[in-house]
């Protein structure tokens, strides 16, 4: 059962930022992650600051110049079904559609999705792990079937978002408002590794709020896809996932971003996989090379070695699905 908290309904970003300055204040948008954390007593809230009524934070629209702006309060369901996203950025529409369950997609926002807390069952459970200020990562020697094979260091979570790898693959930018004003960074730079700060998953500072995401205009010849593997058909995070955005010109890949989900504490860009694709036609051998590149350096734990062949398989399929425009 949740602890008690006071509830603040912010009318503007400025009000929200001010309200978040109080100790123990927690941001509330769709609430699908926050309420679960509160109920599971992962953390308590002194106050809950709702931004769900701030209109300027919603909506999906094309900007002049061909970019698309996605407000932080746009739901995953809106993103998955929006014609602009479906036409221009299939990887993002597919990723949003594959997240969670229909109910959660109707309620969950893209801002919350990027900022959600990890699903590691030790973090969520009754364990004082390193991410909660303890001295032990229980997953390291424990039940680590769903944990990371890249980037673990004192903590072995995977980043749970489906949308984040897609946005990194598309080289999207995220705008952030905070006590010190606004700033814009690449989504790629939003998430951090345990070795940077074991207590946080993002580079957001205290009181900062994600306000919008801007996806750059699709380049001519852009092909993109999201491939997710999970244990059950709905309401399940990725065992592994692959987001690819590749530009194909004259039959060859001229640019590519390959971003992996479910395998690292943040969306994991695979430069090796990208290199294996760039300059080549998309075919089975390029797919195999990219897959081999993607798993280089993987460091499985006792129970998650399956992620290595699984990642290869998912990546091969994802690449091959782009063979035709």
């Amino acid at each position: 059962m949740m602890g008690s908290f006071s509830y603040v309904r912010a009318g503007s970003v400025k009000q929200a930022v001010a309200a978040l300055a109080h100790d123990g204040a927690r941001l509330h948008a769709g609430g699908t992650d926050l309420l679960g954390c509160l109920r599971d007593r992962v953390f308590d809230a002194g106050s809950v600051v709702s931004i769900s009524g701030i209109e300027e934070l919603g909506g999906i629209a094309a900007l002049s110049g061909g970019s698309v702006r996605i407000g932080a309060l746009a739901t995953l369901a809106e993103i998955a079904s929006h014609p602009l996203i479906r036409e221009r950025y299939p990887v993002l529409a597919e990723a949003a559609a594959s997240a969670a369950s229909p109910q959660l997609r109707n309620q969950g926002t893209i801002g919350g999705n990027l900022c959600q807390r990890p699903r590691c069952w030790y973090f969520r459970g009754d364990f004082i792990c390193t991410r909660k200020g303890g001295s032990l990562c229980y997953a390291f020697d424990g039940e680590n079937r769903y944990h990371c094979i890249f980037g673990g260091d004192g903590c072995y979570i995977v980043h749970p978002s489906d949308a984040a790898p897609a946005l990194v693959a598309l080289d999207a930018q995220v705008s952030i408002a905070g006590p010190g004003g606004s700033r814009t960074i690449a989504v790629e730079d939003l998430h951090i590794l345990p070795k940077q700060d074991i207590r946080r998953e993002t580079s957001l500072e205290a009181g900062e709020i994600v306000t919008e995401i801007v996806v750059p205009p699709p380049r001519a010849g852009l092909r993109s896809t999201y491939r997710k593997v999970r244990e059950r058909g709905s309401w399940d995070f990725a065992l592994v996932s692959v987001a690819i955005a590749a530009v194909v010109a004259a039959g060859k890949v001229s640019a590519a971003r390959v971003v992996l989900g479910g395998v690292a504490p943040k969306p994991w860009r695979s430069i090796a996989a990208e290199a294996a694709l760039i300059g080549h036609a998309i075919d089975e051998s390029a797919a195999m090379r990219a897959a081999a590149g993607a798993v280089e350096g993987a460091q499985p734990l006792a129970q998650n070695a399956y992620k290595v062949p699984l990642l290869r398989g998912a990546l091969e399929e994802a690449v091959m699905s782009l063979a035709r425009p």
């Binding site: 599971d40 369950s101 699903r119 069952w121 030790y122 969520r124 459970g125 424990g142 039940e143 244990e231 059950r232 058909g233 709905s234 309401w235 399940d236």
Partner: peptide, 14 residues
């Protein structure tokens, strides 16, 4: 570690 309906996976309609 999976004493909840999210981590303990019963089949969905899918």
């Amino acid at each position: 570690v999976n004493s909840n309906w999210h981590d303990y996976k019963i089949p969905t309609a899918m």
